[in-house]
Nucleic acid binder design. Structure first.
Lengths: 157, 157
DNA sequence: TGCATACCGTACCGTAGTGGTACTGTTTCG
DNA sequence: CGAAACAGTACCACTACGGTACGGTATGCA
């Protein structure tokens, strides 16, 4: 349905919260209450972010999660990768462990090289937005450079 | 899971097929066999495209579907809208019949004005690719103009 | 007139992913 | 030693997706 899962959505919110309070420890409950979200959901997503080394965790009383580092060097693409796992707009794009495309309808592939481009376009857009932008509430505007686009298509065909 | 549904995928393939044979009538089976896809799936998606007035249909013996018009004036965004229906990256963005946002977690909204931007960014990217590009197998490259982006954010806050 | 072709509409179903909950550890601090 | 908070895993209801089936209608041709 072409939408980000709620879990990923929550993850972005949590990441923004921690980035806004950079260096400070915040418990899962604190974040959940701030956004009025179910605590278990937030803990789940925080674990995921921790596994991807986006945030740090501190166990025990007074523990929680914290973001330490440069918010400008963490991209939205990075966050979504961490939260959604490997993803692609179309199945044909997904690759297995060896990096081989697991293509269901091979015959179609040659007739839609464009899908690779669309996929890359969206990923590229995500890659250019940083966590810092998100914390500042930035509203990015995507553009596709048409002329460059066409020349690219020729050179890569 | 942030991916286009297979039905939409099939729809794009079908649209490309018809655009490549512009003005000619092609049956659902012809298209299905070309891409090695199940016929009922292709018919379903062709009906959808027809409902959105993207393609025309001809019933009876020797009938089928055909694309007539300017492939350059049909955008990828248009096609995806037709195939996926109204969509948004996050639920918070979706609006009801009156255009009001049906927001589950209202408190979070102010803290993520960025989501509107991301959403618009992706839609904007889709809007700049035409059916003509798709038939030519173009590989678009998305770009976000960062400086313009920031000034926009300020002016719109 | 009859029949085959092909679109039209709708309903159905198995499966997988999503959203959410629960429970049992394990670490840390007071 | 007990409360707070993370870690890990398992579970479940529900929805959407992918796919199929079937009865209906319009068209062309013999």
């Amino acid at each position: 349905m072409l939408k980000i899962s709620k879990l990923t959505d929550y993850g972005l919110l949590a990441a923004v919260y921690l980035a806004r309070h950079s260096g400070e420890v915040a418990s899962a409950r604190e974040i959940a209450e701030f956004y009025h979200l179910p605590v278990p959901m937030v803990t789940k997503v925080l674990k995921t972010l921790h596994h991807s080394d986006v945030i740090e965790s501190q166990r025990g009383v007074g523990g929680g999660y914290l973001f330490r580092g440069d918010a400008e060097s963490v991209t939205l693409g990075h966050l979504i990768d961490a939260l959604e796992g490997p993803w692609d707009l179309v199945e044909c794009e997904t690759t297995d462990d060896q990096g081989h495309a697991t293509c269901a309808i091979r015959v179609a592939c040659p007739s839609r090289r464009f899908m690779f481009g669309i996929n890359r376009a969206v990923k590229g857009a995500f890659e250019q937005v940083t966590l810092g932008d998100l914390t500042r509430g930035v509203m990015p505007v995507a553009q596709i450079d048409k002329p460059m686009l066409l020349s690219r298509a020729e050179s890569q065909s």
